[in-house]
Each structure stands twice: as structure tokens, then as C-alpha cells.
């Protein structure tokens, strides 16, 4: 298929493994889905210590199940990426281990305290949910299909995160304070979750033309802001002064220039201090069991 035809036909769930798609399409789709799959793995990696640190048996079970779900999402997404015929799953997992694989900004930052967990499990998962809902209409059918299951499970994760947040927000004064501090630290990163501003987004135009993306980064960011800022205040959280947020025609708009884009690009290039920490730790865990993969590699699937 010529690129021109691909663009003309582009629409929700339009293309699948039986279509002879142009290389540009397959590479762009691979980049997007690989990024998404990597993010599932690195998100799981960030949250895994909280399985142990959960303050009740129920929470422990929920965290273990959540981390397991994220690995399952990674598995589904790598399969959806693999079906484009550009890279194998092993190649993508190796790239993640050796620091070439890219993933979501929020998973580059260390998370050490329980009261930080709703920042991922409520806000970031909520942000992910909004983006993923739009991907149900992406043009690569296996990706859209994976999203059906992922969005379903993500709904439970957000409830789990919201429940932890409610517990802290209605807990002792100290718990409320710790939650507020975590929120202030994470809020700007959460707003950067949707990626660079539209004028800086190098891949957006092409991805939109071939139907891989259906909404721009800034559109998603504003939609998230308008849904989640009220939720944050509902739980008694105070919105930090920076980045500035103004109201226009009854809608909240974030002053994007107030966000630290230098840090964002360092993160995006796996070049932030936290990036090295997360990637290296995950890589050494991956390498430590390379012997098992080698041992079973002779098996026929």
C-alpha cells in the first residue's frame, strides 16, 4: 500500500496484520506501541515495592494484582507491536534494558513513600485512561483491541488509587500534609504526562494523518486538567501556584511555559538522574535471569 492510500483509508481499527502497510506507518506504529508497552513495564517496576509496603492484606493483594495487570498489559502491547513486523518482543525488551527504549516521563522519578502511590495509581493512571480511551479508535486494529482489555482493568486501578487517596485525605492531619507534599512534587510531572506541547511534538502530525493518534497532546492535557483538577480539590488538595492555571470560558487552561521542559526532554531522552536509576535497576533484574531464558530457548513454543 502506498502512503497516500494509507492516509486516505486511515480510520478507527482500519488496518491489521493482513494489510500490506508502508514502512513509515509500521515504524511509527511500532514506536508508539513500544513506548506504551515499555511504560507498562516501568510503571510496574516503580510500584512493585508497595506490594510489600502495603499497610493491610487487602492493599497488598490489590497492589500485587495491579502490578501483575501492568505486566499483562505490557505483554498484550508488545504483541500488538510485534504484529507490525518491525521488531520482535525480545528486541524491544532488550532495548528497554539497555536504555534505548523510551517510556513515560512519570516512571523516571523515584517513588519511595506510600503517600506518593495515589500520584501514580490515581492521577497518572487517570491520565493514561484518558489517552487510552482515544486509542480505542486508533487505526492499528491489534492496538485498539489491546486497549479494550487494558481500559477495563485500568478502571479498577484508578478505583484502588482513589481509595488510597481518600484514606490519606481523610486521615490524620499528618497524612493530609504528606499527601499534599507528594501532590505538589508530582503535579507538574503529571501535567507533562501527555508529552511535549503540540508545537514541539515531532511525531504527532504523521501519527494523526495515518489515524494512529486521534487527539493531540495539548487537547488531552486540557481534557485531563478539567476532569482531575476538580477531583484533586474535592480531596482537599491545594493546587500549587506553578504552573499557573487560568480559567477561560469556564475551562481550566494550564500555562504550559511554566512547566520545566528542559527536565522533560532530559527525561524523554532517558538522561535524567532517575532514568538511569530506574533503567539500570530494571536492567540488572532482567539480566539476572537471562540464564533462564537461555536454558529454555531450545524449547519449541
Amino acid at each position: 500500500m502506498e502512503l497516500q492510500e494509507c492516509k486516505a483509508r486511515a480510520g478507527p481499527r482500519e488496518f491489521g496484520p493482513h494489510d500490506d502497510l508502508p514502512r513509515e506507518y509500521r515504524e511509527a506504529a511500532t514506536r508508539m506501541i513500544q513506548f506504551h508497552a515499555n511504560s507498562e513495564i516501568m510503571g510496574a517496576y516503580l510500584e512493585r515495592p508497595f506490594i510489600r509496603q502495603s499497610p493491610s492484606l487487602d492493599r497488598k493483594l490489590a497492589f500485587s494484582a495491579k502490578v501483575q495487570d501492568e505486566i499483562g498489559h505490557g505483554q498484550l502491547l508488545y504483541r500488538a507491536a510485534e504484529s507490525l513486523g518491525v521488531k520482535t518482543r525480545e528486541e524491544m525488551l532488550d532495548e528497554l534494558a539497555n536504555g534505548e527504549g523510551k517510556f513515560l516521563n512519570c516512571f523516571h522519578y523515584p517513588m519511595t513513600e506510600w503517600w506518593e502511590t495515589p500520584m501514580i495509581a490515581f492521577f497518572v493512571d487517570g491520565a493514561a485512561m484518558r489517552r487510552q480511551a482515544t486509542i480505542k479508535r486508533t487505526s492499528w486494529e491489534p492496538y485498539a483491541h489491546a486497549m479494550d482489555k487494558i481500559c477495563f482493568e485500568e478502571g479498577f486501578h484508578i478505583k484502588h488509587g482513589e481509595h488510597i487517596m481518600r484514606e490519606l485525605a481523610t486521615g490524620s492531619r499528618r497524612e493530609q500534609q504528606l499527601l499534599q507534599e507528594a501532590f505538589e512534587e508530582w503535579w507538574p510531572r503529571i501535567l507533562q504526562f501527555f508529552g511535549p506541547t503540540d508545537d514541539e511534538s515531532t511525531h504527532h502530525d504523521f501519527a494523526a494523518e495515518v489515524g494512529l493518534k486521534t487527539m493531540s497532546n495539548d487537547e488531552l492535557r486540557q481534557a485531563f486538567l478539567n476532569a482531575y483538577l476538580p477531583k484533586a480539590t474535592e480531596y482537599g488538595l491545594e493546587i500549587p501556584d506553578e504552573p499557573r492555571i487560568r480559567e477561560e470560558d469556564g475551562r481550566y487552561v494550564v500555562e504550559e511555559d511554566d512547566l520545566d521542559w528542559e527536565e522533560f526532554w532530559a527525561v524523554a531522552n532517558n538522561d535524567y538522574a532517575g532514568s538511569h536509576e530506574q533503567i539500570d535497576a530494571r536492567a540488572s533484574a532482567h539480566d539476572a535471569v537471562a540464564w533462564v531464558r537461555a536454558t529454555i530457548s531450545g524449547e519449541t513454543a
Binding site: I41, A44, Y45, R48, I51, R52, L57, K60, L61, S64, A65, V67, Q68, I71, G72, G74, Q75, Y78, R282, A285, A288, V289, V292, R293, I296
Partner: peptide, 27 residues
């Protein structure tokens, strides 16, 4: 649970997480 996100393959990661959750359920 220490094997979660550290198992040799994604499949074994999922399987061991199941075992961990079963044991927590038994506990």
C-alpha cells in the same frame, strides 16, 4: 512477590504473581 517484574519472562512473571496472590489469599 519479589519476583514480580523480575521473573525471566513476562509469562512467568504473570504466573508467579498468581501464585503469590493465591498464597496471600490462603494466608
Amino acid at each position: 512477590t519479589e519476583w514480580q517484574v523480575r521473573a525471566p519472562t513476562l509469562e512467568s512473571d504473570l504466573a508467579l504473581a498468581n501464585v503469590a496472590q493465591d498464597e496471600l489469599g490462603h494466608a
